[in-house]
C-alpha cells in the first residue's frame, strides 16, 4: 500500500560536520596555493605537489555541500584545476610578463612597462596586419572551397556521407609539417603548377609562387580547410530537407530556395568554421616560415622568434597578449549571439 501524506519540510542549516569539512578544505587549498609561489622544491615537484594539495582541498570543501550537485563539482575538479593552472594562470602570467622590463641576461622585473606594447605595435605592426590579411584571405577562400564541398556531402552524399567525411579528414593524418613541405614541392619554380600559371599569364615569365604571399596563403588555406568544412557540414546536415521542399512547393526556384532557406540556416556553421579557421590561421607561423621569406612573416613568426631566439620575453608576451585580445574581440560577439551551451557541443 502506498500512502502519501503531509509532513514537515527539511531544514537547511549547516551541521558541524559540514563546517569541519569546509574549514579543513579551505586550509589545505590555501596551503597549496601558497606553496606554488614560494617553496623550496625544485623542478616538477614544485608544480605537482601544490596541485595535488589544492585538488584535495577543493574536494574536501565540496564534500561540505549536501545536495546532489556536489558530485558534479567533484567531477569538475581534476580537469577544471588543470585548465585553471595551465591556461588561466599562464594567461595572467603573460599579462604580467608583458609589463616587465629587462633582458635575459640581466633578468626581468615587473615595472608596468607599457612601452612594450608601443614597441610591439610600431616595430611589428606590419606583421600584425599581414597576419590578419593572410588569415582573412585564407578564410574567405576556405569558405569558397569548403562550403560547396560540405553542401555536396550533406545533400548529395547519401550512403557515402561517412566515407566522404573520412576522406576530407584523411589528408590530416599526414603530419602537418610534411603536408606543408609538400606544397613547397607543388609550388616549386620548375614545377607543374607554376608552369601552368605562367602559361595562363597569372605569373610573369621568371616569377615564382614560392616565397610570395600567395604560397603562404595557399598553405594556410589548405591546412585549415577541414576546420571550415566540418562545421558547415554539421549545420547543413541538421537542416530538415522538408524545409527546402516546402520552399519549392511555394514557388521558389532552387537558387531562391538556397538563398532564403538553406543559406540562413547554415550560417551558424559558417560562423563557427570562420572562427575555427581565422583564429589559428592568424597565429600560424609554420606556413610562413616554410613557404615564405621574412617578407611574408606573420605575427606568429615574430612571437616565436622573440620568445625562443631573442629571448625578449616582455615584448614577446606583449605581442602574444595583443593577439589574444584581438581573438577575444572576435569571439565575444559570437558567444553573446549563440550562448554558452553551444560552445562545447
Amino acid at each position: 500500500m502506498a500512502d502519501v501524506g503531509h509532513a514537515v519540510a527539511q531544514t537547511r542549516r549547516m551541521t558541524a560536520r559540514q563546517w569541519g569539512l569546509l574549514i579543513v578544505g579551505v586550509v589545505i587549498t590555501v596551503l597549496g596555493v601558497t606553496m606554488i609561489t614560494g617553496s623550496a622544491l625544485s623542478g616538477l615537484a614544485r608544480l605537482v605537489i601544490p596541485i595535488v594539495l589544492i585538488g584535495t582541498g577543493m574536494a574536501i570543501t565540496v564534500a561540505a555541500i549536501r545536495s546532489r550537485t556536489r558530485v558534479a563539482y567533484w567531477l569538475l575538479i581534476p580537469g577544471g584545476l588543470w585548465l585553471i593552472i595551465f591556461y588561466v594562470i599562464p594567461m595572467t602570467q603573460l599579462a604580467r610578463t608583458s609589463l616587465e622590463e629587462g633582458t635575459f641576461q640581466t633578468g626581468f622585473e615587473f615595472a608596468w612597462r607599457w612601452d612594450n606594447f608601443a614597441e610591439a605595435f610600431t616595430t611589428f605592426g606590419g606583421q600584425f596586419f599581414r597576419s590578419l590579411l593572410y588569415g582573412g584571405v585564407a578564410t574567405i577562400i576556405a569558405i569558397a572551397i569548403g562550403y560547396p564541398l560540405a553542401y555536396f556531402i550533406a545533400f548529395r552524399g547519401g550512403r557515402y556521407k561517412n566515407l566522404l567525411l573520412v576522406m576530407v579528414l584523411m589528408p590530416f593524418l599526414v603530419p602537418f609539417l610534411l603536408r606543408t613541405l609538400a606544397w613547397k614541392v607543388i609550388l616549386a619554380d620548375d614545377g607543374f603548377v607554376v608552369g601552368v600559371f605562367q602559361t595562363l599569364g597569372l605569373v610573369e615569365e621568371n616569377g615564382r609562387l614560392l616565397a610570395t604571399g600567395i604560397a603562404v596563403v595557399a598553405g594556410i588555406t589548405y591546412n585549415f580547410l577541414a576546420f571550415m568544412t566540418l562545421p558547415i557540414y554539421v549545420s547543413l546536415e541538421k537542416i530538415d530537407h522538408s524545409l527546402v521542399e516546402a520552399a519549392n512547393d511555394l514557388y521558389a526556384s532552387p537558387m531562391v530556395a538556397f538563398r532564403k532557406v538553406t543559406w540562413p540556416l547554415s550560417r551558424p556553421g559558417v560562423v563557427a568554421g570562420t572562427l575555427l579557421t581565422l583564429i589559428p590561421a592568424a597565429g600560424d607561423y609554420v606556413n610562413a616560415q616554410l613557404l615564405g621569406t621574412p617578407q611574408q612573416f606573420m605575427i606568429g613568426n615574430v612571437i616565436q622568434s622573440r620568445f625562443l631566439v631573442v629571448l625578449d620575453y616582455p615584448v614577446a608576451s606583449a605581442l602574444s597578449l595583443t593577439l589574444m585580445v584581438a581573438v577575444l574581440l572576435i569571439i565575444i560577439p559570437y558567444v553573446r549571439a549563440t550562448g554558452t551551451e553551444e560552445l562545447v557541443a
Binding site: 500500500m1 502519501v4 503531509h6 509532513a7
Partner: peptide, 16 residues
C-alpha cells in the same frame, strides 16, 4: 513514488 524526484514537502509511505 519511485524515488527519482524528492517531494519539496510531504512524505511517501510504502507498505507502512
Amino acid at each position: 513514488i519511485g524515488g527519482f524526484e524528492e517531494p519539496t514537502t510531504g512524505t511517501i509511505r510504502l507498505d507502512g
